[in-house]
Every structure is written in C-alpha cells, then in structure tokens.
Simulated assay, not measured.
Amino acid sequence: MFAQVGPSMKTYIETRALPPSRPSREAYEAALARRDQLKATVRDWYSQHNILMLAHPVIMGLPPKMSDRSETEVGGQKCRDRAQHRLGVCASMSSLVLPAGETPSGLPVGLEFDALSGQDRELLSVGLSLEATLGRANRPPLLG
C-alpha cells in the first residue's frame, strides 16, 4: 500500500511513522491513553447534556482549493487547512458528512454530524432524512 500513496503522503509517513522517526512504544501507549480519556470525556459530556448528536461545519471557514498550500493555526500549531483536527475522528465517534450548499465560487460546503460510537443507525437515519430534504450535492467545478 505504501508504494501506491502519493508523494506528500509518503513524506508524511516517512517523517512521522517509520524508523527512526516513529514514536516510541511509551509515546504510542500514552497517545492511546489520551484517546481513551477523550472518548470518556466526550461520552460523559453527551450524557450530561442529553445529546444524541452534534451538527457543525466540516471546517471552520471557506473550503480551500486543493492546490492551495495555505496554513492555519490550530491549538497553537501551524497545519495545512485541509489537515484540521476533528473531534469525531480523535474520539472514535460515528460521523457523517452531508453536502450543505456551495460557496459563491461553487466549492462544496459540508455539514458534519457526530454521535457516540455505536449510534450509527440513528446517525444514518438522520442523514437519510436530511438528504431527502436537502437534495443531493452538485458536482464541484473542475479546478484547473
């Protein structure tokens, strides 16, 4: 699989996941422990506030063109706009993204729904209902 990924992904993997840059076993286990704590915190927060799912924009701002190399600051660290961290992914949540319109230049805008792990059926039910109401997305313009 590694041979089939693009050059930027190869560089990312080589500099972060392969020897000699690969995290130590202790760092890996500490990251898993932080993820478990995040999952427990999110689960408790959803329960405390009686939340079934949250809806929010996929990214905070207009979607960047894939050709853009701009950076943004997230948590005090610079990262590429399309590499923003997402709570649903980090907390192993069930997530669904639906098209929610377009920017004035015709780029698609998405609306993300996050539910606790195991709530897939409820999430998909809401997604099907909203898709029937919102309609299907238009194909984005070819960038070029």
Rank of each mutant, 00 (worst) to 15 (best):
K78E: 04
S95C: 15
T133E: 13
L98Q: 03
S105W: 07
G88P: 02
A83E: 12
S95Y: 02
S67E: 11
L62H: 09
D44K: 10
L116P: 00
L123Y: 02
H49D: 01
G110R: 03
L128T: 12
S47C: 09
E131D: 06
C90I: 12
R139S: 10
V97E: 08
D114V: 07
R35Q: 09
M53Y: 09
R136M: 11
Q77V: 15
L52C: 10
K65N: 07
A137D: 01
P99E: 04
S95G: 08
A83K: 10
G106W: 00
R82S: 11
N50H: 15
T41Y: 13
E102D: 08
P57A: 04
G88V: 03
Q37W: 08
M53A: 14
G110T: 02
D44V: 07
D120I: 06
R82L: 14
F113A: 03
A30P: 02
E102F: 08
E112S: 08
D68Q: 14
L54D: 03
S125F: 10
L38F: 05
C90N: 15
G118F: 06
S105R: 09
G76M: 06
E112H: 06
P63I: 00
R82H: 14
A115R: 02
A132Q: 09
L62I: 09
A137Q: 03
V58L: 12
W45I: 12
V58P: 01
L111M: 07
T103I: 01
G110A: 03
E122N: 11
R82A: 13
A91C: 08
L87A: 04
W45K: 10
Q84F: 05
R35H: 04
K78P: 09
A137W: 01
P141F: 01
P104F: 04
Q37M: 11
G106S: 04
S94K: 08
K39D: 07
G75Q: 06
R34V: 04
R34D: 09
L52N: 11
E112W: 05
A100K: 05
A55P: 01
